[in-house]
Amino acid sequence: MLTDKELDNFIICKKCNTLHKKIPLHQGGKALCSKCNTFIYKRDNNMLEKSLALVVTALISLSVAFTFTIITININGLSKSLSLLSLFDVLLEHHQYIVGIMFLFLTVLFPFMMLSSMFFVLFFIKIEKYGYAIKRLLILLSHIQHWNMLDIFFISLLVAMVKLFDYAKIEFGVSFLALLLTLILELMVTKNINFDTLWQKYNNIYGEDNDR
């Protein structure tokens, strides 16, 4: 039997389930799966600081995206604008409660929870405090990651816009850009952040008493 420390030297590819032994990389180097060429991990000494900066920016632009108008359409002088508030107004008016609740969770709450818990995890690891919260948040993060559908909402927005293109004049609001920015930042964060490293850092700080 190998000890936990030795087991930490192994990693399993998430796509094809092949076991690999980790090898030391130079700064910025990437490790790919030997069988299916999927990206597995990379070495980045500034991962924590970089991710923290990206997450803070993403949180700010997300709150902007949720506050202001996303797009405004104009059909023969009649105009209507889409913002988060008007969206729930209309859904309630049409009594679409199930769809409304799903929408609320998938595109508002989960993206927000994901980014804010990432922020707290990175921040707490940085200041090396609140070990229990780090663990809870890391577990929460891995569960809600599948359910974040902000990117799909954006694609749907584009599809809806193309549908309306023939009848209406479309003006972009502030939130449209903010939404785009959030998505790009989110992509960068997910590329940059490495949960395996975060868990190892957590273990290094609270290695002995993590059975709580």
């Binding site: 797009i71 359409i73 209507k80 889409l82 008007s86 969206l87 209309v90 859904l91 049409h94 679409q96 769809v99 929408f103 998938l106 595109t107 559908m149 799909i152 909402f153 694609i155 749907s156 927005l157 599809v159 809806a160 549908k163 309306l164 209406a168």
Partner: peptide
């Protein structure tokens, strides 16, 4: 989910 979201967005804009 794209389809559902598109319907929601359209229902807000064409109102």
């Amino acid at each position: 989910m794209i389809d559902v979201f598109v319907v929601i967005i359209l229902s807000v804009l064409i109102h």
